[in-house]
């Protein structure tokens, strides 16, 4: 019984991080209507950002987080204006290949900068634990969960109540009607893409609390995020958050209860994607940015 509780706590803490990784992807798709295959690479770059902050500047990743978010926003904005904006009206093939190419470029920039070696940016306190009853809580996981929760809450509040957040949802729901409101969709696209990038970078910075960093970590993260976003319904923030927890719980259960489960966990995302696409390609939980 306590075992189950421990598993659920672990899954819950992990789910927060998964949610943050996927919310950016979901936002980008919901507004710009492009699945960004480079999203996993943003997470990877965020993790290396935290690594550099810790090793070069001796700055705690949590302190570096706001700067990384701003950098991610600027980088995403430039990437959109400079590259992605040019394929908005192109066929899906071009869009897919373009973001795939961006992923390849970012991945190997990381190889050049940091080599393929495994790195870690875990501050010492991330490894310590607190025992509540019979449940172990690893501080790194708890912090990651809290940061993810704060950022997602900030995002949803902004989308819901701010003037610009409302404009973002308007563009996602009806592009032409948004123009009639005086909203400049080009600006909103750039903003949403930049935000999506910043969220990816932010989740990378806190991923470094939990796992090791390599230039190639982005792909499996992307796959998980895609599974989550599809399960939640492409573009729905609320759906994304819920399905992030579903995936985290499913993975944790598989890892624990299936023999040699740790190896199979990577397959859970695959099973979810194939299952959903076969049964309900529009996703299970939500639709267009219904936060």
């Amino acid at each position: 019984m306590t075992n189950l509780l421990q598993l659920l706590i672990d899954a819950l803490l992990m789910g927060g991080l998964y949610a943050l990784m996927s919310v950016g992807l979901s936002l980008g798709f919901g507004v710009v209507r492009i699945i960004n295959f480079a999203h996993g690479e943003f997470v990877m770059l965020g993790a290396y950002g935290a690594y550099w902050a810790l090793t070069l500047l001796h700055v705690d990743p949590l302190l570096a987080l706001p700067f990384l978010i701003v950098l991610g926003y600027l980088g995403g904005w430039l990437l959109f204006r400079g590259v992605v904006a040019w394929v908005l009206k192109a066929p899906a093939l071009n869009q897919i290949l373009l973001t795939f190419g961006i992923a390849l470029v970012l991945q190997h920039i990381a190889v050049v900068l940091w080599t393929g070696d495994v790195r870690s940016a875990m501050p010492e306190y991330a490894l310590s634990t607190t025992i509540i009853g019979d449940v172990f809580v690893v501080h790194g996981r708890l912090i990651a969960f809290l940061v993810a929760g704060t950022l997602i809450a900030a995002l949803t509040t902004w989308l819901r109540y701010s003037e610009t957040g409302r404009a973002v949802r308007a563009v996602a729901q009806n592009h032409d009607a948004a123009i009639l409101m005086g909203i400049n969709p080009g600006r909103i696209y750039a903003l949403a893409f930049a935000m999506s990038t910043a969220l990816g970078i932010a989740s990378g910075a806190i991923v470094s609390f939990l796992i090791n960093i390599t230039p190639f970590m982005g792909f499996s993260i992307l796959l998980k995020a895609v599974a989550i976003v599809i399960l939640g319904g492409l573009g729905s923030i609320a759906g994304t958050v819920i399905s992030a927890f579903i995936l985290a719980i499913a993975e944790t259960m598989v890892a624990y209860y299936v023999p040699e489960g740790a190896g199979w966990t990577e397959g859970v995302a695959f099973a979810v994607i194939v299952g959903i696409l076969l049964v309900r390609p529009r996703g299970i939980i939500g639709s267009a940015l219904a936060t």
Binding site: R166, A170, N174, A177, L180, S287
Partner: peptide, 12 residues
């Protein structure tokens, strides 16, 4: 413009 087909933002 109040456009043809109303075009309200359905989820809002």
């Amino acid at each position: 413009l109040s456009p043809e087909g109303r075009q309200v933002f359905p989820e809002m």
